[in-house]
Design a protein around this nucleic acid. Sequence first.
DNA 1: CTGAACCTTCCAGCCATTGGAGGGTCAACA
DNA 2: TGTTGACCCTCCAATGGCTGGAAGGTTCAG
Lengths: 151, 151
Amino acid sequence: MNIGEASKATGISVKMLRYYDDIGLVRPASRAYSGYRVYSEKDISMLRFVRRARDLGFQVKQISSLLDLWEDGSRASADVKSLALNHVRELERRRRELDEMIGTLQHLAHHCHGDNRPDCPILSGLSAEEEEAPPKPRRTKTSRASFAVAG
Amino acid sequence: MNIGEASKATGISVKMLRYYDDIGLVRPASRAYSGYRVYSEKDISMLRFVRRARDLGFQVKQISSLLDLWEDGSRASADVKSLALNHVRELERRRRELDEMIGTLQHLAHHCHGDNRPDCPILSGLSAEEEEAPPKPRRTKTSRASFAVAG
DNA sequence: CTGAACCTTCCAGCCATTGGAGGGTCAACA
DNA sequence: TGTTGACCCTCCAATGGCTGGAAGGTTCAG
């Protein structure tokens, strides 16, 4: 199976398949004489596994662990379950943050007239100062746990 | 105001402030003779604005637009409102995806015994094939709209 | 004067991808 | 047999939003 067919079979782009090969996540079973990657049926299964896990928001490192568990005949299902449940908790945390964002933005937008008068409170809302940080000793390292959401 | 003080005043790390300067998002009002960045009160306001907008999941490009609107006295509040509402829709889309992920993972984990028997359905669930793509003409470009969630 | 806490620039890396250049391979068709 | 043209290869660079570190200049208290 060439990389293009593997791509169609798994829904993973050709570029991504090569990338997964590079980083060692899923390596094709062999190479043809021409240098073409040759994917086996097992590779395809693994790649489908990878795709679904990515769709579920798993990071490549986590998927790597899952693949190890999958390949390891003596794996304990408890390991897999706890990995999955940890992941559910993380997703739920993200969901809560998302909810807060949506709530704040909707609140702000709701109080914005939306006509052409320049009195939309979104901007003033965004520039408002939040609760002040507690008094710190001087010369403290500034560390803000910023979080980012992929676009 | 030096960069360190600006950092404390805004909750944005020193590194980030320099980065924002580099990319032109918020430039310090001036430089001291020594080359130190000097932030004005207005800069601080803008940076707080930026921070809140980032917390709300806005991307830097979008914040740049918002800052332009903020600085432009003749801004139309309708612009801001539509920007915000577009953003709400995007956040809601992400939340739906997140919900699906959580549901799938919970479903799978729920059917996993969690004892040490290696029959956890999470792995088989993850490797299962989804609905097949409709038959395509040969030699079609493979394009999968993959989405990723930041970790 | 010393030292350490601050500041500077530059360079490199993270993650998961995408894009493109510049070239080799393969199969069908004239 | 030669020519398409779709496929494949590697390598290099960029994305966004940072973070870390090296190598060095500045400021200020003791």
